[in-house]
Every structure is written in C-alpha cells, then in structure tokens.
Simulated scan of single mutants.
Amino acid sequence: MAEQFWWVIYPYLALAIMILGLLYRYSYAQIGWGAPSTEILEKKYLRIGSLMFHWGIIFAFFGHVMGILIPKWLYEQLGVKDELYHFNAIVFGGIVGLVTWLGLIVLIVRKAANKRLQRKAKASDFVTLFSLFIIVTLGTSMTTLYNLFVHPYEYRDTIGPWFRGILTFHPDAALMAGVPLLFKIHVVFSFALFAIIPFTKLVHFWTLPLRYPARSPMQYRSRVNDKIKRP
C-alpha cells in the first residue's frame, strides 16, 4: 500500500493540486501571478544569485528531459554508450547542479540577512527557497557524489519508465521498488514542489512572455534633457 501511495496516488495528487490551484489563482487572484522584483531593495546579490539559479535551472530542466523523458533505447539506437552518457551526466550535470546550488545559497543568504527584504518577504518565500535548496542539493548529490563514490545508477531503467508511465496514466510502482532512497526522496520533494507552485511566487514559472516581442515600445525621456527643452 505504501508503494502504491507514493508512486501512483501521490504524484497525481500533487499534480491535481497544482493544476486546480493554478486555475483558481488565474481566475480569482491573477493580480499576484507574477514574481515582484526586489531589485529596488537590494541589487548586487540579486543579480548574482538570480542569474546563477535561473540559468542553472534551465539547463537542469533540459538535463531531466534527456535523462527521464527520452527512453534509453533511443540512445542505444543513436550509438550513445552507457559509459559516455553517464560521464556527460556526471560532468555537465554536476556543473549545472553546482551553479544552481550556489545561486540558491546567494538568494537564501540575501533574503535572510537583509532586514528590508525580511520585512517584505512572506513565509511562502522562505518555504520556496528552502524547498528548492533541498531538491537541488539532493539532485546534485545524486549526480556527483552518489555516481562517483557509490556507483553510476541507471535511472533510465527505473525512474524514467515510471515517470513516463505517470504521463501516460500507466504508472508502475514496481519500477521504483529498487530505487536508492536518495533518489526516492528527491522525487517525493519534487512532486511536493509542484503542489505548492500555485501558492508561491513559483507560479510565474508557467508564464511565457509570448506577447513581449509584439508589444509597443516604451518611451523614456531623460529628466535632464526634459528640463533643457523646456522654455
């Protein structure tokens, strides 16, 4: 029953909360959909931490697509050997994970040490940062420490098919039975993060600036030039 709950019921429960929460927030609380910038309160460390985190998480997303959504047999058809795949996953995945992790450290310290940011911050902001920190720490540890010092775990035979089964509504809990505990915790926390997205600033993750290239340009005028032109 525990296996069925964690690997069949729990993922759909988390995704259902996310979808329903997004629909509700978009319908009744759209004014707070975005992530308000705190640049006016502190700029230096925001620029460093935000750039590192966002670029890191983008590359991490594509890394998960390559490792989880693309079946192992496709790599075999393309002639990519397991050794080459795991070497690239450890090297590039480790670099991406470390960059993302360091970016989160900067953002957490920035939020915790700046009193002006503390007064503006909500409890959900700290929950978001620490949830991301746990997930990224586990993911980076799996990619580097576990694969280097324990053994390269072939998640494409277990977690990959299981996750694709979630998307096709045919999840097989048996695939997760032999998965190392570290990987299981990472998966559980990741789905928990999906569930809290509608209630945090992470909601802006689902906003794509599709209309941005076609919008009208904004006109700015220097105050100095404006004073000179006045009679």
Results as ranks from 00 to 15, higher is better:
M1H: 06
E3W: 02
Q4D: 10
W7R: 07
W7V: 07
V8P: 07
Y10M: 11
L13Q: 01
L15F: 12
M18G: 07
I19G: 01
Y24V: 06
A29V: 05
Q30T: 01
W33F: 12
P36D: 10
L41C: 11
E42T: 03
K43S: 07
K44H: 10
K44F: 05
K44N: 09
K44W: 03
K44D: 03
Y45H: 13
I48Y: 03
I48C: 07
G49C: 06
G49Q: 07
F53G: 00
G56A: 03
I58A: 03
A60S: 13
G63K: 08
H64Q: 11
M66E: 04
G67E: 03
I68P: 01
K72H: 02
L74I: 02
L74N: 02
Y75H: 01
E76L: 08
E76K: 04
L78E: 00
L78G: 00
G79I: 06
V80S: 09
E83I: 04
L84E: 04
F87N: 15
F87C: 13
N88D: 05
A89F: 15
A89N: 14
I90D: 02
V91Y: 14
F92S: 03
G93M: 08
G94R: 11
G94T: 08
G97K: 14
G97E: 15
L98S: 14
V99Q: 12
L102M: 15
L104D: 04
L104E: 09
I105P: 11
V106D: 00
V109P: 00
V109F: 05
A112I: 01
A112W: 07
A113C: 08
K115R: 13
K115F: 11
R116I: 04
Q118E: 06
Q118K: 10
R119M: 14
R119F: 11
R119Y: 11
A121P: 03
S124G: 05
L129A: 14
L132G: 10
V136H: 10
V136I: 03
L138T: 07
T140K: 02
T140P: 05
T140N: 05
T144D: 01
L145H: 03
N147W: 05
F149L: 10
V150E: 06
V150D: 14
P152K: 02
R156M: 03
D157A: 15
I159M: 06
I159R: 02
G165C: 00
G165S: 06
L167F: 00
H170D: 12
H170N: 13
P171C: 10
D172E: 14
D172W: 08
A177S: 09
A177T: 11
V179P: 13
F183E: 04
F183V: 15
V187F: 08
V188W: 00
F189C: 13
A192V: 08
A195H: 06
P198L: 12
F199R: 12
L202K: 02
H204S: 00
F205T: 04
T207W: 15
L208R: 04
P209V: 15
P213E: 07
P213V: 06
P217T: 09
M218C: 14
Y220E: 06
R223A: 05
V224R: 07
K229L: 07
K229C: 13
R230W: 15
R230V: 15
P231S: 04
